[in-house]
Amino acid sequence: MKIAFIYIAEPYQCYHTATVASALASIPNTQVVEYYSFPETPLHLRRIRHSLNLPDLPQKPFPKSWKTKALKHARRHDQERTLVLKENIEELNRYDAVIATEYSAGILKKMGLTKPKLILLMHGAAGRYVKDQYLVPEFDLVLLSGAKEEAFFESRGLLAHNSGRIIGYPKFDVFAAMRHDNTIHFENGHLFALYNPHCQRALTSASKWMMPLIQGFRAQINKPDGYNLVVAPHIKMFHKGFGFKERALKRQQGPGILVDTGSPAMLDMTYTSQAALYIGDVSSQIYEFLAIPRPCVFLNPRKIPWKNDPHFVYWTLGDVVDNIHDLMPTIANAAKRHALYRPAQEKFFQEAFGTSLLGASQRGAKAIMQYLTAS
Results as ranks from 00 to 15, higher is better:
254 G>H: 07
59 Q>H: 10
360 A>W: 01
153 F>V: 05
23 A>N: 05
208 K>Q: 15
275 A>I: 05
327 L>Q: 09
134 Y>V: 06
230 V>W: 04
295 P>N: 14
130 V>S: 08
87 E>T: 03
267 L>N: 11
347 K>A: 11
141 L>G: 05
77 H>C: 08
339 A>R: 13
116 P>T: 01
209 W>Q: 09
6 I>S: 01
194 L>K: 06
40 E>S: 10
325 H>V: 10
116 P>I: 01
54 L>W: 15
273 S>H: 05
2 K>M: 08
12 Y>I: 09
293 P>W: 04
306 W>N: 13
278 Y>K: 10
5 F>Y: 13
298 F>M: 13
50 H>A: 15
247 R>S: 08
351 E>K: 07
39 P>N: 07
327 L>G: 02
181 D>C: 12
54 L>C: 14
314 Y>K: 09
260 D>E: 09
228 N>M: 08
133 Q>M: 14
135 L>G: 01
182 N>G: 04
14 C>N: 11
41 T>I: 11
74 A>D: 04
368 I>P: 00
314 Y>N: 10
364 G>N: 06
231 V>D: 03
322 D>A: 11
179 R>A: 15
88 N>L: 01
329 P>M: 12
238 F>D: 07
39 P>T: 10
211 M>H: 12
35 Y>L: 04
110 K>W: 02
352 A>F: 06
330 T>A: 10
298 F>R: 07
2 K>G: 07
212 P>K: 13
47 R>D: 03
186 F>N: 08
281 D>F: 11
58 P>G: 13
239 H>G: 15
266 M>L: 09
322 D>V: 02
204 T>N: 12
44 H>K: 05
140 D>Q: 13
123 H>W: 14
34 E>H: 04
25 A>Y: 01
129 Y>E: 14
130 V>R: 11
312 F>W: 11
168 G>S: 08
36 Y>H: 11
301 P>L: 13
287 Y>H: 15
77 H>L: 15
240 K>P: 00
32 V>K: 05
358 L>V: 03
26 S>V: 03
352 A>E: 10
360 A>R: 02
364 G>V: 03
204 T>G: 12
306 W>M: 13
66 W>H: 09
67 K>L: 10
7 Y>Q: 12
230 V>Y: 09
57 L>S: 14
115 K>R: 12
214 I>S: 04
167 I>H: 02
351 E>P: 01
276 A>S: 13
337 R>H: 08
291 A>K: 04
